[in-house]
Amino acid sequence: MSAIVFESVHRQFERDGKSFPALDNVTLTVADKEFVALVGPSGCGKTTCLRMAAGFEAPSSGRVLVGGVPVTGPGPDRAVVFQQFALFPWKSVEDNIAFGLRNRKVPADERRERIAGAIRLMGLEGYETAFPHQLSGGMQQRVAIARAYVLDPQALLMDEPFGALDAQTRVVMQEELVRLARVNPRTVLFITHAVEEAVYLADRVAIMTRRPGRIKEVIDVRSIRAAEAWDRHERVEDVMDLESFVHLRTHIWRSLREEKVGGER
């Protein structure tokens, strides 16, 4: 069990000696093996939520639980894909991906196999020995995803993981993520600015208000996906053409737009 639970989470930050609320009473549950996408205006506190689940940050009040246990610090059971990649510049692609497995003392044979698998999955073949600075932004992002994926973690915390990808690669990665979620479901908290991506990937989409962030609305995509049989379609663009998809997307768009109009910046 690895449900992620936010219970009345508040978070204050300080800037210029003044304290301001970044999160205001966030309550949200990502059930075990559920994929929840978090969308909201820039600066509303999405990353802050994810950092609390990762254990980098503590709530000012309220609780964050993973698998029923309050989070006290980071660990490889909750793999993070950072918005800024956070690769180790002094390690090759291969060694970056291997780092977590070596910490866990995974035997060399198994390690090699899993790394090769992750490299294939992310389309990084031929770049095993390259250093991060020799890769494009999109490729660096794929290394960061591979580094998290290879751990086979209970929970995946992904902060705009496809943000730096070109449209084509992005679609490939989205399809891949959906395929993976079917064969090997994981608890995923996934932050994105792309509404279509959220609807395509997630079981549920949580919409946040502008700062101080609250959960404004949670949309159940799963029941509609099942009812309208989205899974019949292999390709992203076919799913995105479906009337039920467009309907959901437009609904979320409107909801987000209300937050931006007259929003403080």
Partner: peptide, 27 residues
């Protein structure tokens, strides 16, 4: 050192020795 680099190492379950030798020193 970029805080994210250290956070990434901690997220990956890095022990003290490897943190010093493979993260702090090269960074």
């Amino acid at each position: 050192i970029e805080p994210h680099i250290i956070e990434a190492a901690r997220m990956l379950g890095t022990g003290r020795r490897r943190m010093v030798r493979e993260v702090l020193v090269p960074a």
